[in-house]
Design a protein around this nucleic acid. Sequence first.
DNA 1: CGGAGCTAATCC
DNA 2: GGATTAGCTCCG
Length: 213
Amino acid sequence: MSSRKVDDQMELISYFYPHIYAQLAQEQEETVKPRRRRKKNKVEGRNNTSEVVMRKRKLLSEEQVNLLERSFGDEHKLEMERKTQLASELGLDPHQVAVWFQNRRARWKSKKIEEEYSKLKTQHETTIIEKYRLETEVLKMKEQLCEAEMEIQKLLLERKSDISSNNSPISSIFSMEQQHFDLGEFGMEGKLMDDNMFFVADNQSTYITLWDN
DNA sequence: CGGAGCTAATCC
DNA sequence: GGATTAGCTCCG
């Protein structure tokens, strides 16, 4: 993975998880990987007159790469038979073919991981947005509920004052009945059960006690 | 020219 | 198989 991509990831982490970022950044500084030193073909030192065995590396031709890619497209794993077959077709050492496949699998895996990462990143962003939307919706609904409750309180107070100012038989009969309130604005219907209880029904006719003094 | 990126080759 | 090295090319 290139350093540029690492920077990108750290930037994303710093954005979404600032607390984790601080920790990771510190770890990155601390773990300066002690690079494993490999035996060199070349003897070190400019003035060293020792034998210099340069490892020659020749790039594969476009044609060779094309055939290898096609073969890799068919099957990522390389059976012995196919390895020798390919090698003779390409005019390469079977070991070179094996190495090429190994490196190709590594690149393929790395690419898959990158793809998976960006897919998850998109999913994560979508989820964050949805969460925010739902939270906003909950707030709005709470506000509506509060307004509804206030409205009900107001109606009850009005009713109580009507009863106390006009204590006629009619009104007492009237008070025996359950009173309905249209709360269509809130997608609900309200029903006053008695002086102390009020129920609302949502679309599924589920009654909810708003309060019970 | 130096650094970045790619990749064949090597090491564990 | 994964990690790393080092040859090579390209670009600013």
